[in-house]
């Protein structure tokens, strides 16, 4: 059985998105099964307008130069790479209802499901993380 990594992304913003995708991509590179459950503000990360929604607040602007200098790929590229690497993205149905979002508001290839779907995966996970 391959290793399983279960991640909850509950916050928005560029910083959170980088943290989540970094671990997800590294996990996928070791042939681990990776699932990310996006809930509350975390849904911004897989929104069709993620590029506009994932910003850095004023007090975090010092990251901008560093990210460029370190040649970190744009967050939207990392999200796409994660999907191409087989990372499974799940959007929280409840948050979508609360925000009035539909599947069309999200990127392609996202499953919409409830907490139980994530737990079913997480019960047998080797690593569980929350961001």
């Amino acid at each position: 059985m391959s290793k399983r990594i279960a991640i909850i992304a509950s916050q928005g913003g560029m910083e959170t998105a980088f943290k989540v995708m970094n671990i997800a991509l590294a996990g996928a590179a070791t042939d681990a099964e990776v699932q990310v459950f996006f809930t509350f503000d975390g849904l911004d990360i897989i929104h069709v307008n993620a590029a506009e929604k994932l910003t850095l607040p004023a007090e975090k602007q010092h990251y901008v130069e560093g990210l460029q200098k370190a040649n970190v790929p744009p967050i939207t590229d990392m999200i796409q790479m994660a999907q191409e690497s087989g990372v499974r993205f799940i959007a929280c149905q409840m948050t979508m209802d609360v925000l009035g979002l539909t599947k069309e508001d999200l990127m392609d290839g996202i499953d919409v499901a409830g907490a139980m779907t994530f737990l079913d995966f997480a019960y047998d996970a080797d690593v569980s993380l929350t961001f």
């Binding site: 970094n22 991509l25 590294a26 996928a28 590179a29 070791t30 040649n71 970190v72």
Partner: peptide
Amino acid sequence: LSCPMPIVKTK
């Protein structure tokens, strides 16, 4: 390239 890209590309 920064982490995790070297590993992603190696894979």
